[in-house]
Structures are given as C-alpha cells and as structure tokens.
Amino acid sequence: MTQTIRVSKAGKNVLTESNFNNYIFYSDKNTFKILATGLLTSQTVDANPKTFTVAHEQSVTPNFFAFCEFPDGKVATPNSKDYTYQPYSSDGYGQFDVEVDATNLYFILTKPSSNYNVNIRYYLFEGSL
C-alpha cells in the first residue's frame, strides 16, 4: 500500500478530497523549495544601464525570481518599468531586468535621467534552467 502524507485545508477531508488545490501539503507533489534568498539595499543607479552582480553560488544555472523597490516605494517584478511609467511623460526612474548564468545573477536597471536608489530582493529556487 502506498502511503502519503496529506494536510488538507479546513473543512476538507483528506481521505476523500480529490482537488489538489484543497491541500496545504500533499506528499505526492513536489514543493517548490527556496534554496537561497538575498537582499541588496540602497543600490545607486548612476549609469545607463547599471548592473549589480551577485554570485549565486549554485552548481547550476538556477531558477530565480526577484523584486525591485523603486524610490516611490512601489515594488516591481523583473522586466518592469517603474510604477510611474507612461509614454510621452518625463516621469519615471527606469526599468528593472534580471539575467542569470552559471555563476551570477545580474540585476540591470536603466537610468533615463537622474540617479536613483533601489532595493532588490531575490530568490533562488530548486531546479535549473
């Protein structure tokens, strides 16, 4: 008999529930494990573009995700322009991009006008690209 460990959401019966989304944990399914995370604070974007490099110290090119906080306090996901962006406007700070290779994470920000500071949070997940 195959044995599993299941934790259902409140009100759901672990013995009969067939919708996977109603489980908090189900040992038949992998969990997306966070291998490492890091925070870069008060990084100054003083070139266009500006690249901040972080060694990820993984043996493979890892799955990743990241967030960037612009000076207005709004947090953006990779490939985003800042919150104030709109064409034909002089508002805005720049765009946040992320790249990865076997050695490093590269956080790339554009600087259309003045220097600005950002904070960046990144996550490394299991598996490789």
Binding site: F25, S27, F32, K33, I34, T37
Partner: peptide, 14 residues
C-alpha cells in the same frame, strides 16, 4: 540532491 526531495524542512517554500 534537493531536487530529489518532495519536502525538506531545511528549505523555505512559498
């Protein structure tokens, strides 16, 4: 190898 584990309390999850 963490990729061969379904769950490990060594690692955080979303």
């Amino acid at each position: 190898n963490v990729n061969n584990l379904i769950f490990s309390s060594d690692y955080n999850t979303l």
